[in-house]
């Protein structure tokens, strides 16, 4: 009898797994190479030469800065709204047993389970019916809606662990509801919320499909990039922006990973 755990993987599986991961990563690495190419007009490979000049050019482009600034503002506000709504929802679902919690989970998941174009066009036609002019707030409205689920998913698992005897212990020791929230619940869920917030930020920062319908004349960074992809003006600038976007989205993902990992260890040791 042999144990599956102690033996090493069959070579075929190793190759397939490694191949799959390479397939995922090679194209992204390519972006890094192209940011330094001297070629301006085409996507020639290998690049005829390498240069740093496009970083300076990009730095001096006001349209890139405007798009970046709008994206950061939208993502920040949408994340804040999603944090409040997602946390409330997770708290309600995990602290009590009431009928209909499955329906609520479904409702929260729906905005990302249905294709983004549906959310986008639904919001757009609702805005036009209600005579709401496009602005940063119409973008935020859409983004917050699909960011709720990320916060909710992160918070609901942690809430389940905090609820029950820790909350009872706090009340038993004389803490009322608000004190219990401040001294026990919040410290225990904070890393999960932070991680959820990071992911929500990344999701909003990168969103393009819903934004094309709710954005009107203004460009977030992804909208700017989409325009460059459809009608390229200065390809090397797009290359540089693409690389920066990859780097910027990596940070919250890594941070979220380390936050939830440590959090699990802390919460797990409490038992």
């Amino acid at each position: 009898m042999r144990s599956d755990r102690s033996t090493s993987a069959p070579p075929g599986l190793k190759i397939a797994a490694a191949g799959g991961l390479l397939f995922l990563h090679l194209p992204i690495m390519l972006i890094f190479l192209y940011a330094f190419t001297t070629e301006e007009k085409s996507y020639q490979f290998p690049p005829p030469g390498l240069t740093l000049q496009w970083f300076a050019v990009t730095w001096n482009r006001p349209d890139v800065w405007e798009a970046l600034s709008l994206s950061v503002r939208v993502a920040s506000i949408a994340t804040a709204i999603a944090l409040v709504l997602g946390t409330l929802c997770a708290a309600a679902v995990s602290q009590t047993r009431f009928f209909g919690r499955e329906t609520i989970s479904l409702l929260v998941i729906l905005p990302i389970a249905l294709p983004g174009i549906i959310t986008g066009i639904a919001l757009r036609s609702a805005f036009s019916m209600a005579d709401i002019p496009f602005s940063i707030w119409t973008i935020v409205l859409g983004h917050a809606t699909f960011c709720v689920v990320v916060v909710y998913n992160n918070a609901v698992a942690r809430f389940r662990r905090v609820s029950g005897s820790l909350v009872e212990a706090s009340m038993d020791l004389g803490a009322n509801g608000l004190q219990t929230f401040r001294h026990v619940i919040l410290p225990n869920i904070s890393t999960a919320l932070l991680a959820g917030g990071m992911l929500a930020f990344a999701l909003s920062f990168d969103e393009v499909i819903v934004t094309t319908f709710t954005g009107g004349q203004q460009s977030t960074l992804p909208i700017w990039m989409l325009q460059e992809l459809i009608r390229p003006r200065q390809r090397p600038v797009t290359n540089v922006v693409a690389m920066v976007v990859v780097l910027v989205t990596f940070l919250p993902i890594l941070a979220a990973y380390y936050l939830t990992r440590d959090g699990d260890q802390i919460a797990g040791s409490g038992k």
Binding site: P27, I28, I253
Partner: peptide
């Protein structure tokens, strides 16, 4: 992380990367 990073990487950048790869003069 090897799965999470590409999953969360910018959607448009990923498409762009393939434009670089699949272009006639590309890699």
């Amino acid at each position: 992380l090897g799965v999470m990073l590409p999953l969360w990487s910018s959607y448009l950048v990923k498409i762009y990367a393939w434009k670089l790869i699949l272009a006639k003069e590309g890699i």
